[in-house]
Write a protein that binds this DNA or RNA. Sequence first.
DNA 1: ATAGACCCTCGCAA
DNA 2: ATTGCGAGGGTCT
Length: 350
Amino acid sequence: MTREAMKKQWESIPVVSKEMNMELTLSSGQAFRWVQLEEEEEKVWAGTVGEKLFILRHHDDELQYRVATPTSDPSEDRQTLVDYFRLDVDLPSLYQQWSRDDNFRKKASCCQGIRLLQQPPLEALLAFICSSNNHISRISAMVLRLCERYGRFLGRIGDRDFHSFPTITSLVGVVKEAVLRDLGFGYRARYVRESVEEVGRRGGETWLELLRQQPYEDAKAELQQLPGVGSKVADCMCLMGLGHLGAVPVDVHMWRLVQRDYRVGGGSSSLTPAVYCRVGDKFREVFGETAGWAQAVLFTAELQMQKLGTQTGERRADKKTAGHKMPRKVRMPLSQDECQDKRKTKRLKL
DNA sequence: ATAGACCCTCGCAA
DNA sequence: ATTGCGAGGGTCT
């Protein structure tokens, strides 16, 4: 089949717009490797899931896709996307449940269709290790270069090459800290290398799959054994790499949002491990088992607010004072053993 | 329990 | 136009 003919042929999966906002889902910082490109005067998304290179768009209540890699079984491609976007989950009804929380209903009404991606575990783990004390544009660049260096070439679209995320076997014993530093990883180079080695020792992707079967708390505790994986990165991995939808990653943005919109922690305290834990518990109390997904929606909605705010020339002079006029400190009664940082076990020595 | 250091990039002031 | 400075989806010591 010629290239031109390929271009016209879209496969499709019915997905109404309430079910999916592709733009926000792919660009809100869950995954770092999707790129939007122009193709025949329209915007499409290109990226990889596992060993497949996809081109996506959302048109006419359909998720339309092309696979740019040779494929033996077309139904497999479809299933890959169904799994990746969790299309079996009825999102509007989740929004409805979450909307019993007044703040959610107000803030999320503008941002329907934020789906939680189910990402390949190793990719999620390493990407979020890279995310620490970092911003999205740089994280994307780092992950991109990691794939270029160690991943498999999957194809070229326009002038851009796409690579798969490297497997654990292509990394163990191969990644060198100095190389990662050259790729711009900074001090995270050591975290990535050492975590790769440790994941390898524990059984690679198979071990990560086992963590998926374990209870969230256990999986999180295991992950925090890895260098570069604290409570936030562990929660990101649990939520987006392992499908533990109750995991609630709390970064500085979420922390500000929580202080402003929810009564957790009190105004003056910083995000200590104990407070971190309380935030997650609060979210699980309000949103139930899918608290992590609800968090992702609130996070994205907040990002949108800020983006729209700055676009309309609004002052962001309140950056320092935003959300600091807190109601009085309200401490949650808290039993010590229900909420504590699980990182007590000795970090393994490498 | 709390503070600093840590790689590097970018936006925004002087 | 350069230079300087702080903060950015934290973790470790």
